[in-house]
Amino acid sequence: ARSPLPPPVRDPNCDDPEVEQAAWAAVQYVNSNHRHGYKYTLNQIDKVRVYQRKPVGEVYSMEIDLLETTCHVLDPTPLENCTVRQLTEHAVEGDCDVNVLKLDNQFVVSNAKCESSPDSAEDVRKICLDCALLAPLNDTKVLHTVDAAVAAFNAQNHTSYFKLLEISRAQLTPLHSSVYVEFVVGPTDCSPKDAAEPAACNLLADQHGFCKATLTEKVGGEDVAASCVVFGTVPVVPQPQPDGAGPTVGPTVAAGTPVVAGPGPAVAVGPAV
């Protein structure tokens, strides 16, 4: 059984620099301890109390409000370069209760409990009548859009066959005429041509593609537009060569270099190709 907390030492201001430091330690902790969805950033410190920790140190017991960013947790982009998801994109908030230990001027999170919740549909409607609202990730239209987008991405001339790893976000427009999805794919050891049996293709470690796609229904069919940014070292998969030709040297992309694959061949951004 835990002993009850001693009386608080002090109630500092929520915007006190030391409290902010503790809050940022908590944000970092939260982002490094979830493997799905998006990175969160600090929006507001709601409450804070400081307790003495025996034999040494202090515990910052805090309530903090976080906001979802557009960077996936597996995306190596530093949090400070990530954009906060806007209200028009149906923002998601995180509420966390955290205890952060301050010892030798270092802040270490001892525990955190968070709940995330999207903004209400009514609130989104107040600022934008035709904004797309978040949809369940297992919605039939969402699943269909992701399948179509992964197929479209693989149909482009990549060196690897990409497998779906996670559906991260989905939005339906008010009249459901289009579906917007965000998902994560990973390259495999199969080339797109020998991926007839995708189950036999093995994912390559620590390489991810972050994709956005829109499926629009139209008379007599549908349009799919997909684009992915791939991080990691994409290996060269040997391609069949005509007799006498040497091995093909395909693009090898250094870790952290984004490859933007839109409609058309993959384009490497940066000098590392």
Partner: peptide, 30 residues
Amino acid sequence: ALGPKPVIPGAGPAAPAIPLCPGRIRYFKV
């Protein structure tokens, strides 16, 4: 211009400073 602050009989010593919480909103409130 308004003169000295009036003294309220029976008023005790100044209350302890109330911590300023919640803190600032960095983006927007959901």
